[in-house]
Amino acid sequence: MSVLILIDHADGHVKKASLEALTYGAAVAKQLGVPAAGLLLGTVTEDVAALGQYGISTVYQVANETFNTLDAQVYAKAITAAVGTTGATVVIFSHNQTGKAVAPRVSAALKAGLVAGAVALPDTASGFVVKKAVFSGKAFANVSVTSAIKVISVNPNSFKVEAVGGTAEVKALDVTPVAARVKVTAVNKVSGEVPLTEADIVVSAGRGLKGPENWGIVEDLAHVLHAALACSRPVADSHWRPHHEHVGQTGFQVAPNLYIAIGISGAIQHLAGVNRSKVMVVINKDPEAPFFKAADYGIVGDAFEVVPKLTAAIKQLKG
């Protein structure tokens, strides 16, 4: 019996979401009194043994560069094999792009129940019950996993990365990848920006900004906070901003530590994408905007006056 956690990576670096998954997995293992191990498919430039600081004793690595490109089928076959070799009974992913593509396949291959989007550690007092976000963040469900092997994908930003120190033993795992059928022909990364779904702070703006030419003040605020940019659906639909910035029920769901909403009224569909944020700040000139009911802090005022002042005040704080 053990807990196996997928170490997801891109461009040679372990993703922050994976560190959260490792911390989560180490905590699950501790709770069950079994060892926790990481599974690294592919290669990274970082010191793999140092991942032991997140509470895992072993990293199994299949150092084959085929895995540096995501083909969910190739990944699932390798992970399923690794589960067999290592005797893992709990398999953990981040509920990020990789986890969403791979965890369901692993679940189906192993006939292992999947809790997708877990927000808390399992309750193992009687059975194995995991809390997950449902109804787009408007509620939670406690899901009992009844199969022998359990698969959990952890919602990004739900579990704080904790470095406890220590070094993991790195063991090479002999898994031959099946032939990849998905061929990646182009990668377009938005350079210089913080990825939205990995960001600790998100600065988001809506129709209150009146037009795309006014986004400078939003970008300035995001810049001083090292925040990711986001927008409401009408803004993306009007092509003021690219659709990869659209957060809401039908866009991206985010759960940063701080979400700042500027000129967004806070329709229920928008809130569904952001309501798991730890702290929400709203800046809107309409005191009746529904967002004020959901937010933790608010300023009733004109964004064009308030936001530059806020940027200046934060600059001063950061020295």
Binding site: A139, F140, A141, N142, A295
Partner: peptide
């Protein structure tokens, strides 16, 4: 392989 045993609503916000 799984079963929902219960649902819960998020705790009410303290107010803005």
């Amino acid at each position: 392989l799984t079963q929902v045993v219960s649902y819960e609503l998020p705790p009410a916000k303290a107010g803005v």
